[in-house]
Nucleic acid binder design. Structure first.
Length: 813
DNA sequence: GTAGGGTTAG
């Protein structure tokens, strides 16, 4: 160690360099000490490089002396000539034999041949390819010592080497301390930033380059543009991207294949698929990466069909898809979502021998999770290499179905393999705990997020906030919100909906106003997300206040906000207000129509629902699956059997919409309530959902109404088999037996319920007093404060027996 | 006979 310090003191290094290189050397020393067979060097300065030579030989197990090399013979001919050594090293490096290239370099040093700047240039790239920072640092020492640092080729090589090894700050330091810079050194540094995802830094440096350079036209070239486009893509900066595009055309650099590819990527990452496709179509020459970039553009923008179409076109043009292409089309299949296409591409991936790449494996895990097929997702995970991203894909998959125990088990596994979790890991873990409100587990995830310094990250924070709100710990949610370093619109929507969920309407509005003050302009998106939050929790008072704010901003009649208002009012039972907003909207899309149709249906306005549906068809719009949920719901409510059958057939046959569980349950309800119990039972069995408890419950309810014994027993058996802990089934079944005076069976069911500890779920009611929810359970008087008693008294005076008044905020679920 | 910088995929 003393020798190293001595070596460093002797040179004219800046102090920062010294301490950093010292640190790196120290790690080399520690590694050497760990490998007990190696002794520490003892004497002169050149030994510095010997450190890393030993380390490298340990790490890479290069057995140079025992291997015969094809170029080995040449050594005898060229002897101690630096050129012959250098070309030997270079030739091996070019063929990808990086270990061997390094061995030749070490041999050359041993033979006391002095390297020149070309040798360093080549060997830096070798250490970069091996991504061996220790070798690189030792080379850096040697370069400083031998005085080659001022050479442009050498210094730019070091910039790239450090950034590829993950030491971006060291790369910048070299860049800053370079006495002379040329286009390549600038480009190397800009590329280093954009490749590391430090897009802002990349663009800053780009503008510095424009200011600093004597003539920027001499400095900016196709390399600069490619990196800058990548930075714009990372930030979603359309404006800068567009101006770069214009300039690339002016400079005549747009025909470069890298510039073209990065332009396409920039436009598609900014969401402008039209421009991306135009650039793609206008390119004179395309390579595999160009095609992959365009396919990716489509699949990232949820245009799965177009992505797959391009995949076939690419092959018609004679391009052979590679692993990247397969990762893209798998993602496209997940985005549609089309599980048949996904499985087909999986098979193609296997056949083409591309299934072993970790990117492809992760795409498979992700795809199967999105199909809710965790069995195949786990299988794909088991067959792929493990890294943090593949683990994240698995964890996120579990979170989609709320399987937090498995998610946590995967987390424990990745920790046991010494992997470092990132923001995606924690986002997945929190949302896996949210669905079933797994409080203790989520709190542990919180602790771990602090351990890894990710608790104030905005995406981690948002999912943590959502988790606490779901668990009813609104104070913790607020704390989380406050600790997010840079809250975004989603963060605000999250905390506002958290308040709404927990019956704190006043707070929800307070935070909405806060958000209003902080950001200069509230956009459509934030309004509609807040309205949605309030709608789901039937917070009418707050919704009205928000509506007033919306009118002030003039956003009331826009599609998103208008539809959200329609939805909010109808969910709060104020369907006339929904209609007022709906009829005022100058432009409506299918979402707006759906909101109104479903709103009418859910509030019992069956005739209006069906009339509005006809109006929608007349206006030329194509109904969606949501539209038919409203229509069928109205039919079931109104007892319109024939109409229900017709609408169902219209949906499936004329519009090609596959029936969902909701549609089928509605149909069972329509048939069952009208007494067509045999038809209803057949419908359930033939439907795509014979294993869903909900659809059988619907049939069971109908059997209870019509006192249908045989079908009722069969339906109840299905319900018990699929959901053995649901108290409602036991109660209905016991009623069915009771209606036939089968008292033994009734007693048996009651006993069974006792044995299985199944209790009848109590009914809850709640009222809204000055924007605070007060929940009641039958028989519980602990919540009767004076204020509550007063409100209840007022309400009782106005209410008729057995009729709940929805317009005055009194609900009974 | 030898040398530095760029685009796509989870």
């Amino acid at each position: 160690m003393g020798i190293l310090i001595h070596l460093l003191e002797k040179r004219t290094f800046t102090s920062n360099y010294k301490s950093w290189i010292l640190l790196r050397c120290r790690s080399i020393v520690i590694q050497i000490k760990k490998a007990s067979s190696v002794c520490l060097p003892t004497t002169s300065a050149p030994e510095c490089f010997n450190f890393s030579r030993r380390v490298t030989s340990i790490h890479k197990s290069v057995q140079f002396s025992q291997t015969r090399h094809p170029y080995g013979e040449m050594l005898a001919n060229y002897g101690n000539n630096v050129f012959s050594w250098t070309s030997m090293i270079s030739m091996n490096a070019q063929k990808g034999f990086n270990d061997r290239a390094l061995s030749y370099f070490l041999q050359m040093r041993r033979a006391a041949v002095e390297p020149n700047e070309t040798t360093f240039s080549v060997i830096i790239r070798v250490s970069c390819e091996l991504s061996c920072a220790d070798t690189g640092t030792s080379l850096h020492c040697l370069i400083l010592k031998k005085g080659f640092f001022r050479q442009l080729f050498v210094a730019s090589g070091l910039i790239t080497m450090y950034s590829k090894c993950g030491y971006i700050e060291q790369a910048r330091q070299i860049f800053d301390e370079m006495p002379d810079k040329d286009a390549v050194s600038w480009n190397a540094m800009i590329a280093a930033y954009s490749q590391e995802g430090l897009s802002l830094e990349a663009l800053d440096l780009f503008s510095l380059m424009l200011k600093n350079g004597t003539d920027w036209k001499l400095m900016v070239n196709n390399f600069t543009l490619a990196s800058s486009f990548k930075a714009c893509a990372g930030l979603g900066y359309t404006k800068i991207g567009k101006s770069l595009h214009t300039n690339s055309i002016k400079l005549g650099l747009n025909s470069d294949i890298f510039v073209g590819g990065s332009t396409i990527d920039m436009y598609s990452k900014c969401g402008n698929l039209g421009m991306a496709r135009r650039v793609f179509d206008q390119m004179k020459r395309r390579d595999l990466v160009t095609w992959n970039t365009m396919i990716t553009g489509y699949s990232q923008n949820y245009c799965g069909e177009e992505a797959i179409e391009l995949f076939y076109q690419m092959q018609l043009k004679g391009f052979l898809p590679n692993e990247t292409t397969f990762a893209c089309v798998l993602k496209a299949s997940a985005a549609i979502p089309d599980s048949a296409a996904g499985r087909y591409f999986h098979a193609k991936t296997l056949r083409s021998g591309n299934s072993l790449y970790v990117y492809v494996g992760t795409a498979l895990v992700d795809m199967y999770s999105k199909f809710f097929d965790m069995e195949d997702a786990e299988k794909a995970f088991g067959e792929t290499k493990k890294n943090i991203v593949s683990f994240n894909a698995l964890i996120t998959g579990y979170s989609l179905v709320g399987r937090y125990e498995e998610a946590l088990r995967a987390y424990a596994k990745l920790r046991s393999e010494n992997m470092r979790p990132d923001r995606f890991t924690f986002t997945g873990l929190f949302s896996s705990c949210s669905l079933l409100a797994a409080l203790i587990e989520g709190a542990q995830v919180h602790a771990h997020s602090i351990k890894f310094g990710l608790e104030s990250n905005v995406s981690v924070g948002n999912s943590m906030l959502n988790f606490y709100a779901k668990c009813g710990l609104i104070d913790s949610a607020v704390e989380t919100f406050e600790s997010i370093t840079m809250p975004n619109t989603i963060s605000w929507a999250g905390i506002i909906s958290g308040f709404a969920q927990n019956g704190e309407g006043e707070k929800a509005v307070e935070y909405f106003c806060k958000m209003h003050k902080l950001s200069e302009k509230i956009d459509e998106f934030s309004f509609s997300s807040v309205l949605k939050a309030l709608a789901n929790w039937a917070a009418t008072g707050q919704g009205k206040q928000l509506h007033a704010n919306v009118i002030k901003t003039g956003l009331e009649t826009t599609i998103f906000v208008g539809s959200a208002l329609v939805d909010m009012y109808s969910k709060c039972g104020m369907v006339e207000d929904s209609w007022k907003v709906f009829s005022k909207m100058p432009v409506k899309n299918v979402v707006s129509w759906n909101s109104m149709i479903v709103g009418y249906a859910q509030n019992g306005f069956d005739e209006k629902t069906l009339l509005l549906f006809q109006e929608m068809l007349d206006s030329g719009l194509t109904p969606t699956c949501i539209t038919f949920i409203g229509v069928l719901f109205a039919c079931s409510h109104a007892g319109l059997v024939e109409e229900g059958r017709n609408y169902y057939n219209l949906m499936v046959n004329s519009y090609g919409i596959p029936p969902s569980l909701e549609h089928c349950t509605c149909m069972v309800d329509i048939l069952g309530r009208a007494g067509y119990l045999n038809e209803a039972e057949t419908f359930v069995i033939k439907s795509p959902f014979p294993l869903e408890p909900g659809i059988w419950k619907s049939l069971l309810a109908a059997c209870a109404i019509h006192k249908s014994f045989d079908i009722g027993i069969r339906a109840a058996n299905h319900c018990l088999w699929l959901e053995p802990h649901d108290s409602a089934t036991y109660v209905i079944l016991s009623n069915i037996y009771a209606s036939r005076q089968m008292w033994c069976e009734v007693t048996e069911i009651r006993e069974l319920m006792k044995d299985m500890a199944i209790h009848k779920e109590p009914g809850y009611s709640w009222i809204d007093i000055r924007n605070k929810m007060q929940v009641f359970v039958a028989g519980d008087t602990s919540c009767y404060t004076e204020e509550v008693a007063e409100v209840l008294q007022i309400w009782l005076e106005h209410a008729k027996v057995g009729c709940y008044d929805c317009d005055h905020n009194i609900y009974s679920p």
